[in-house]
Design a protein around this nucleic acid. Structure first.
Length: 482
RNA sequence: GGCCCCUUCGUCUAAUCGGUGAGGACACCAGCCUUUCAAGCUGGCAGCAGGGGUUCAAAUCCCCUAGGGGUCACCA
């Protein structure tokens, strides 16, 4: 079908918490759709819930979006600054008798619901105030009752939602009641505010989580009453927690900020969440720019996905290994600072060394937290030796001597470079009549405190002659004191 | 409970008008490589929720059952 209007989509979070991966993925899909269609991506903050909305959450939301490089073209718009729009539209509906004031108290409504529950019947607002006489209304007002505004919805017929992902979904209007569009505090409800904004902002495609599917007929009814054109809808599957329940804070790391602080790279997180509900085709490692050219809604699945950080972690390791060194250095620095290994800003020399350390260590870690952890011995003296390693490599006869001979060798070897040191080391092991492995393993433990890590000779060269020699001697002494 | 959506390896998914030994990725296991740990390479394990139809032929279409999820607020 020919595209008449250029595409306009929006991501409309409510600032009641940090951006979590479900929201991030909805934002991503909107972003991809907009970019793929050369359309406009709008950010709107749905902050009509006075109780729960916090400005600091808005700030966090924006930060997370920026960090993920989900840049938007318009906004952020704030619903709280558009209240006159909702009131104007509501007034028009009132005028046209498509909406009406309702004076029922929350207590009365709750009582009705309770009664329905007891009777095992579904509760629908009974329409008490639907055709209230002027006198009755005045009486309620005089009695100090406050009013809400409800939409007058059809009792018969059906409302059909045409969903780009799920096809036609039919709802009986008789199952829908006259729901509230303006609360007694004068603020619009979600279903109404959302619709007024979407129409006024000329949103062409509403792409959002499946949890909104059931609300869609209500919104379509609003749009119909307002006399506007319906947007297209696409409800993307939910992301569920590992226990199959709806994502919430109790499920551990689910906010973008948390992933960030746990040492995940934005490109890895983006790539991973894209795969939750969307399939790029053959290759799963897809950078954001590539995603744009590959993205289409008909490759979005209908099935809810359970998120599982195992694959994300693998992917993070991949990006950690493959990304340009400078980029990793930038991302890693805060983690090195947090461990007290470095303090920004770095001197030129410090920075060069830092990059060398990262280059040798990054191949075997999966997160930036691990990267910093695995780099400590390049910055700090050895405070303890791995106990299992001690048992294996330090407790054998002659271990201390072995290390002393190694120290002696390294003190004198020229030039102090990878090949020369390695050759000398192999020669030494022959001369001493021990396996090369034995010599290597005990050296590694002595200079890094660990049994695993980068190639030994890389560590030695990077650490430098002086530190290596002194650590070997220190270890020899330590063994003798055992 | 009413309404709505969904159901392919443990997890993410492919198989887009019915014809495949049901493909890939992560994880797991084994082997190779190797100074350790990773990485990499090779191989392996593992799935169409169940039951009925329709059809020469069903993961794919229809119905039922079961399971999961969502929603029914003066939350969004």
């Amino acid at each position: 079908m020919a595209q008449l209007r250029s595409v306009r989509v929006r991501f409309a979070p409510s600032p009641t918490g940090e951006l979590h991966i479900g929201g991030a993925r909805t934002a991503l899909f909107n972003y991809l759709f907009a970019r793929a269609q050369k359309g406009t991506f709008i950010l709107r903050i749905d902050d009509t819930d006075l109780e729960r909305s916090r400005p600091e959450y808005t700030e966090g939301l924006l930060n997370s979006m920026r960090w993920l490089s989900l840049d938007w073209d318009e906004g952020p718009y704030f619903q709280s600054r558009r209240l006159e729009e909702y009131n104007r539209e509501a007034a028009r509906l009132l005028e046209e008798k498509k909406a009406y004031h309702c004076y029922c108290t929350p207590e009365e409504l709750a009582a009705g619901r309770e009664q329905a529950r007891k009777a095992g019947k579904p509760y629908l607002y009974p329409g008490t105030c639907r055709n209230l006489s002027r006198e009755k209304a005045r009486a309620h007002l005089a009695a100090g009752r406050s009013a809400v505004i409800r939409l007058r919805t059809p009792d018969h017929g059906e409302t059909v939602v045409r969903d780009l992902i799920r096809g036609e979904i039919r709802f009986n209007n008789s199952d829908l009641d006259d729901f509230i569009i303006i609360k007694s505090n004068g603020l619009p409800t979600y279903n109404f505010a959302s619709v007024v904004d979407d129409t006024q902002m000329q949103i062409t495609d509403v792409i959002r989580a499946e949890e909104h599917l059931s609300n869609t007929p209500r919104q379509q009814l609003c749009i119909e009453a307002l006399g506007y054109e319906q947007p297209r809808y696409a409800h993307v599957p939910m992301i569920l927690a590992p226990d199959r329940s709806k994502l919430s804070k109790r499920h551990g790391a689910i906010s973008v900020e948390e992933f960030r602080s746990r040492g995940y790279l934005p490109e890895a997180l983006i790539n991973y969440i894209a795969l939750l509900g969307w399939s790029p085709g053959e290759e799963e490692i897809v950078p954001l720019s590539k995603m744009v050219s590959l993205f289409s809604l008909d490759r979005v699945s209908k099935t809810a996905a359970i998120y599982d950080t195992t694959k994300l972690t693998w992917m993070n390791g991949y990006y950690l290994r493959e990304a340009p060194l400078d980029r990793i250095a930038t991302e890693a620095l805060p983690f090195f600072e947090a461990r007290g290994l470095l303090k920004a800003p770095l001197e030129k020399e410090e920075e060069d060394y830092f990059k060398k350390v990262i280059a040798t260590v990054r191949d075997r870690v999966k997160t930036l937290v691990e990267l910093a952890e695995a780099s400590t011995y390049f910055y700090q003296e050895i405070s303890s030796y791995d106990p299992k390693g001690v048992e294996k490599h330090f407790c054998k006869e002659g271990s201390a001597d072995l290390l002393r001979r190694a120290a002696e060798l390294l003190r004198n070897v020229e030039p102090f470079d990878l090949d020369t040191v390695e050759t000398a080391y192999r020669d030494l092991s022959k001369e001493l009549g021990v396996s090369t492995g034995r010599l290597i393993h005990s050296t590694r433990l002595a200079i890094s405190g660990r049994t695993m890590g980068p190639g030994l000779f890389e560590i030695i060269i990077l650490l430098g002659r002086d530190k290596t020699v002194s650590r070997l001697e220190k270890a020899a002494l330590w063994i003798e004191e055992l």
